[in-house]
Simulated assay, not measured.
Amino acid sequence: MDPLEDVLALLETRAHVSTGLMAGGEWAVRFGAPSGVKFNAVRRGGCLLEVEGTDRPVELAPGDCFLLTQARPFVLRSAPGVVPVDAEPVFAAAEGGFARVGRGDDVLLVGGRFSFGDRARALLLDALPPVIHVPAGTAHAETVRWALEQIGQELLQRPVAATLVAEHLAVVMLVHVLRLHLARESQGASGWPAGLADPVVAQALAALHGAPAHGWTVAELARTSGVSRSTLAARFKRTVGCPPLDYLRRWRIELASQRLRKGTETLAVIARAVGYGSESALSTAFKEVTGSSPRAYRGGPAA
């Protein structure tokens, strides 16, 4: 099992494609802090991205895309010093699926946002930098460019079910952007995403996600990864931030939490499904990790 796929599925990842932006001449647009993860891609032209709390602007060229993983206001502008206008009235006046600012259409951007389940920040977003920029020239970025081209065509031509197709393509783009980021800048990630960049730790993570109910030992994971027990234990803790079996326990509790939120299975059934031999064993582990009992969690506001 691919841990990235596993987490994105658990978080119920959804894409929401928004109105595009056409701009020309001197222009600048100020956006409020987005909900979820904001993404934009430059289909034509170029501009500057300025995100609140970051050190310097990001220069965006044709084919570039970016993700904002935190809720921070940002500005897109043609050049430094241009006074920005608020995005809300600009996009309220959009026609034909595109908002317009400045004079001309030298610049074309498509974008939207990704929404996730309640555990997204703890499981994924906190492990990523606030801005992920993928330049068009990034190695192995062909699939991202293809997805962006297809999204742009869907939004411009508006065939039947264009929004649905564009949103599915956006999720494909998200997976590839995260892959490229983790491969290119593993030091910019922490937790399990950082582990994916270490070939030894990645094999152990894949084994844990592939069979979370299995009674794993560190020695067995080490054999799966082709290293000694001590080597795996040290590399796993250094990259992921916790020992392998502690990670397994927390992932089992995430899986149990999802079943508690979404279904009506008994605690005994859930316990067996996630690798605990009894309801009491699950309850003990669940309370150690979450501070709440499974029964209280199922009936409480957090669920």
Results as ranks from 00 to 15, higher is better:
E5F: 08
V7F: 10
H16C: 05
G25I: 14
G25K: 11
W27L: 00
P34L: 03
N40C: 14
V42G: 04
R43D: 00
R44L: 09
G45V: 06
T54L: 13
R56L: 10
R56K: 07
L67W: 10
T69P: 15
T69N: 07
T69S: 11
V82S: 06
V83S: 03
F91L: 02
A93H: 04
L108M: 13
L109Y: 06
R113A: 13
R113W: 14
S115L: 13
G117Y: 12
G117T: 02
A122W: 06
L123H: 04
D126A: 11
P129K: 14
P129W: 12
H133E: 12
A136G: 15
T138K: 08
A139V: 13
R145Y: 05
W146Y: 14
W146F: 13
L148V: 15
L155D: 02
L156F: 10
Q157K: 10
Q157M: 12
P159N: 00
V160N: 02
E167L: 09
A170I: 03
V172S: 12
V172H: 08
M173Q: 13
L174H: 04
V177L: 08
R179M: 11
L180D: 12
A183Q: 13
A183H: 05
R184P: 04
E185N: 13
E185Q: 12
Q187L: 07
G188R: 15
S190R: 11
P193I: 02
A194D: 02
V201K: 07
Q203L: 13
Q203A: 09
A204R: 05
H214Q: 13
W216D: 01
V218E: 12
T224I: 11
A234N: 10
R235C: 03
R235L: 14
C242H: 01
C242S: 12
P244T: 10
L245S: 08
L248R: 01
R252G: 11
I253L: 09
Q258V: 00
L260W: 03
G263L: 03
E265T: 00
E265Y: 08
V269N: 01
A271K: 01
A273R: 09
G275K: 04
A285R: 01
K287R: 15
G291K: 00
S292C: 08
S293I: 06
P294H: 04
Y297L: 00
R298S: 00
P301Y: 04
